[in-house]
Design a protein around this nucleic acid. Sequence first.
DNA 1: CCTAGACCTTCCAGTCAGTGTAAGGATAAT
DNA 2: ATTATCCTTACACTGACTGGAAGGTCTAGG
Lengths: 129, 129
Amino acid sequence: MNIQDAARLCSLPRKTIRYYEDVGLVTPGRRGNGYREFDRSDIVRLSFIARARGLGFSMEDVRGLLRLQDNPVRRSAEVKALAKSQLAKLEHKLSEISKMREELQDLFDACLGDEGASCAILDGLAQTK
Amino acid sequence: MNIQDAARLCSLPRKTIRYYEDVGLVTPGRRGNGYREFDRSDIVRLSFIARARGLGFSMEDVRGLLRLQDNPVRRSAEVKALAKSQLAKLEHKLSEISKMREELQDLFDACLGDEGASCAILDGLAQTK
DNA sequence: CCTAGACCTTCCAGTCAGTGTAAGGATAAT
DNA sequence: ATTATCCTTACACTGACTGGAAGGTCTAGG
């Protein structure tokens, strides 16, 4: 299977698949003409990566997850620890962004949004508290 | 005032202040010896940028906000429009990350996290749905 | 006057996870 | 044979900084 079909099957851009090969996450075979040849196991691996990235895992973490996935004597506790750390990161981000939204919403609500120059948002940003 | 004191007053790393000058957001004066000289208005401007960045505005947006701040005949409606778009971005991010967390939490809960190799998290990532 | 340490400067490279583009080779359909 | 669509590599760029090297300046103490 060529890269285009692989891309369709794992829902990743071709460029991204080449990049993942560059950084050593996948090693599809090569045909005589230099074309990459993707088989079923490459697609499974790429989909695994895509899903892990979709949960926000860093490339470094994905590497760890793949290492565990490839290791038949892994301990699921180790996987769970990675997941826990990632959950914490997601929750941290959520609270950060949620705080930003609240602050911005307050400024937004205080701003008249009319044709005048006076603006509570700019005032809020400029204030030397 | 030298850059170190400026950095303290606006709560930004020195490196970041130099970067903001590089990209044209601030233009502190220069002394005879080549050192930057920050005055009160530079600090206000840097704090403005820091606060806007803290609300998640992109550098591009910050540029727009500064342009409006500098323009005495601005319409506050324009500022409010920027804020609205930023609020929408924050909410989009929140829902994305919230979805990630939910999915990951489900896998996390299903994983035994013991000394065995069987792992619901890896299975969830590997499944070819 | 000299020196040590703490400032300051510029410039270049690296981060993360890709994405865009150019130049060129291979294959498939007509 | 031609055209269109694939495929390849290599390099540059993104955002928003951050780190480090190499070198100039300033201040305090001896």
